[in-house]
């Protein structure tokens, strides 16, 4: 009996140490980065599916349920995941509301591109008023996002702060090694023009020195007209541009139509962890880099 009681006490005493921090991230790339920082100390859920369009995620009761139990909420910010705001209200969890310890906005340290300097309205399409929010396509910004996640984890689980710091440094070191390798792969293609479907790749293009020649959408979120497609085709032929980049969830028909006329290659990029067979943030960016490099080498 005494031994049973001792064993039971020992088990109960270790329970707090075994409890995981429940984290909810808006997208799968943030969820993966959080797992890499948190290790087995965190249980992470992504609200959006890998195949979802970032801008069109449908809020659902099951998402509110996850948020109601979360100790940390991690978001991209810059209005990309605006759909999450009303979920936060429905979740009845004030610990993860803006300004609370469990709230993490990964965009705060990012040097933002394409911040509007004039008045914006829907005549310009779906414009993000705080700048282009697709900053995670530049691996250097993943370090900044990881830093915010680290600070969040340290706030909600200070007992394991040292462990999170160590994992963060390992993540950054690994990312620096990968970044160097990716830059070597992309070095021969600096300055090359590409066409993108939507204005979601400026950070990626800037990092690897590519030039955005045109977008398939005339304005963000607006489908192209036949006349506009002809313009894009003419520009591609004039610039000898042979590569069209689009995220895995975009419709292909417009890009394919352009490719038929120009002989260009349509490159589908995995824009979320879990898409196109990717398993983590590194494999996602790696796949993006290699597919773009392969297409540019053949052009």
């Amino acid at each position: 009996m005494r031994y049973i009681l001792i064993t039971l006490y020992a088990m109960l005493a270790t329970l707090p140490a075994m409890a995981q921090v429940r984290v909810v991230a808006t997208f799968t790339d943030l969820a993966d980065i959080t797992r890499q920082i948190g290790g087995n100390r965190v249980q992470v859920t992504a609200l959006a599916r890998p195949q979802d369009d970032f801008h069109l995620v449908t809020p659902r009761p099951s998402m509110a349920l996850e948020l109601s139990r979360a100790k940390l909420f991690v978001r991209v910010g810059m209005d990309l995941d605006l759909w999450a705001d009303d979920l936060l209200s429905a979740a009845r969890n004030s610990y993860i509301l803006r300004g609370s310890p469990g709230y993490v906005d990964c965009s705060v340290r990012v040097k933002k591109l394409e911040v509007p300097t004039t008045r914006v309205d829907p005549s310009m399409g779906d414009i993000h008023i705080y700048g282009n929010p697709h900053y995670l396509f530049d691996p250097a910004n993943a370090k900044l996002a990881a830093q915010e996640i680290l600070e969040g984890l340290k706030r909600v689980d200070s007992a394991h702060a040292a462990e999170y710091e160590q994992r963060y440094r390992a993540f950054v070191q690994r990312l620096d090694e990968y970044l160097k390798r990716w830059q070597e792969i992309m070095a021969p293609y600096r300055g090359k023009p590409v066409v993108v479907y939507h204005k979601s790749l400026p950070y990626f293009l800037q990092r690897f020195g590519l030039q955005e020649l045109a977008t398939v959408e005339p304005k963000p979120g607006i489908p192209p007209s036949p006349g506009y497609l002809r313009e894009v085709i003419a520009r591609m032929k004039s610039a000898n541009c042979r590569v069209i980049l689009l995220e895995h969830f975009r419709p292909r028909r417009f890009a394919d139509a352009i490719a038929r006329e120009t002989g260009a290659k349509v490159v589908v990029l995995p824009a979320a962890v879990g898409a196109e067979g990717t398993t983590d943030y590194f494999s996602m960016i790696d796949a993006m880099v290699r597919r773009v490099a392969s297409a540019l080498s053949g052009s």
């Binding site: 809020p59 009761p61 605006l82 705001d85 009303d86 979920l87 429905a90 829907p122």
Partner: peptide
């Protein structure tokens, strides 16, 4: 419309 007025969980979307 313009602006963020929405009813997400009660929405039929």
């Amino acid at each position: 419309g313009f602006g963020p007025h929405s009813h997400p969980l009660e929405s039929t979307q």
